[in-house]
Amino acid sequence: MQEVIDTAKRLLSDGTVNRVAGWKAGEFPYDVTPAVFTTVEEIDNGFIYNDFCAPNLSKYLIKESHKEGKILVFLKPCDTYSFNQLLKEHRILRENVYIVGVPCTGKVDIGTVRAMGIKGITDMESDGENVTIHTLYGDKVVPKTETLGDKCRTCKSKKHVIYDELIGEDGEVNNDGARFELVEKLEKMTPDERFEFWRGELSKCIRCNACRNVCPACSCENCVFDNPGSGIQQRAATDSFEENMFHLIRSFHVAGRCTDCGECTRVCPQNIPLHLINRKYIKDINVFYGEYQAGEDVMSRAPLNAYTFTDCEPGIVYERGGNE
């Protein structure tokens, strides 16, 4: 998208910012990587914005916003929620960031493409309508809508909740609940079936830590999994306890703070649908404490760590039990 590149160059040239956080091509053209650009030349040579620019740039601002000068960042609607959440947690210095909201119609998900049975992929291109997949065995053209991951297919919002400048028209929040459909399916399983499902998924984990490293909510100075004093420090997934507990602990750590940005599932090399654990919590929070979307704003208090006068002491559990 030329407008994005032009905006980056303009704000860098006029001195509004001294750096630009954006995307550049990765090892494969469809495997886009976040990058920081400091000159117009660098932008001309490497900056891209296309249907493969899935990475959420907000987390990088924890470090970047503490550096000298202002940085420009491009945020898709869902990325703005992560930004707000980090702002709420005092992790980003707002005054050092210039946000340009970019429109998004969903990003191509390589996992989804592979799941179609397409092998030997060498390159991909998108014209916004269709995705052309070049493979060792010839080209395939599929409608882009079919290449979206669960996250983009059930996009929660096309609205930017924070920005300094916007490219294109702002969209709407999507409240149709579609994003909870898979969670509902899991809820309908018997406990044994559900246990088997998650055992099956989580046992694939190789403890590469990609999910944690990409997660904007997982931005602790010293993660408990890296802290020898915590008693649960990083160990390879040597036994089933390790695999399972890593994900349960992590999901509890991000409960109420997870904005449902879907990055965990996107980066997992083992294609584990990690976002479903978090979505289950999001759904439960909505049911038990009222609708809440992490990152929607900076001021509201998250249900799981708000201390209110209506908190009843015998526990919400008591009331809940009474109703059901």
């Binding site: 947690e89 005092h90 992790r91 100075e221 010293n222 760590n305 708000a306 201390y307």
Partner: peptide, 11 residues
């Protein structure tokens, strides 16, 4: 050394 300053505790 480990604190993020996230304010979860204060809340």
């Amino acid at each position: 050394l480990m604190c993020n300053g996230c304010s979860a505790c204060e809340k």
